[in-house]
Amino acid sequence: MTGQDPWIRAEMGGTKQASIISKPEVLSALMKKANHPIFLIGSESITDNKQSDLLITLIKNLKEKWNVPVISTAHITGTLISRGLVPNASMGSMEIIDRLCDNKWQGLDGKGQYDLVILAGFSYTLGSLLLSGLKQCSWNTKKISLDPKYHPHATWSYGNMKFENWQKEIERFFDIIKTDKKNMEESHV
């Protein structure tokens, strides 16, 4: 079960571990079920590695399709804007997790706490801690990790994958989004 080992091997999960996003339909179903989702994008999304472009495209797609608000952590807002992604807010990773842990927080839109938190673009270590913090304070919030490294503390996570395989998965997800009709039956997760 290599794909489902924590990417940093010493990062043990807990008694409840993330389910694997085995196919893009899972993601799509999760998005549809969400009432109030939010996307957190970390600083690694703008590093030079080959994942960046795809990740930014993915976020744009989510934003356009389901109107998912995006929060950029660290210092990357300007770069994102220059690459065509305008985040809804810029906030430190600790600051946003802290707010997501506060059941009185009304969200960026004043509509209350979020029920689905999607993360991508964080160093694995930091991502783990953010997910662990969220899991602890907000057990019932769904947490999705979209990076191609298995995150046991999430609710749903990709397994450890080579870039090429992950790319295929994400591109298939784009296809689903495009062909998706409003009246399409909801797939069950």
């Binding site: 999960g13 807990g14 008694t15 409840k16 802290d98 662990s132 913090g133 602890q136 304070c137 057990w139």
Partner: peptide
């Protein structure tokens, strides 16, 4: 300045009552 906790793992393993799973309340 309120604490935000980012647990290193779900468990407490400090005594022989345990280990105890502290996740999910």
């Amino acid at each position: 300045y309120k604490p935000l906790y980012l647990p290193f793992c779900d468990l407490c393993c400090l005594c022989t009552y345990g280990k105890c799973d502290l996740s999910g309340g």
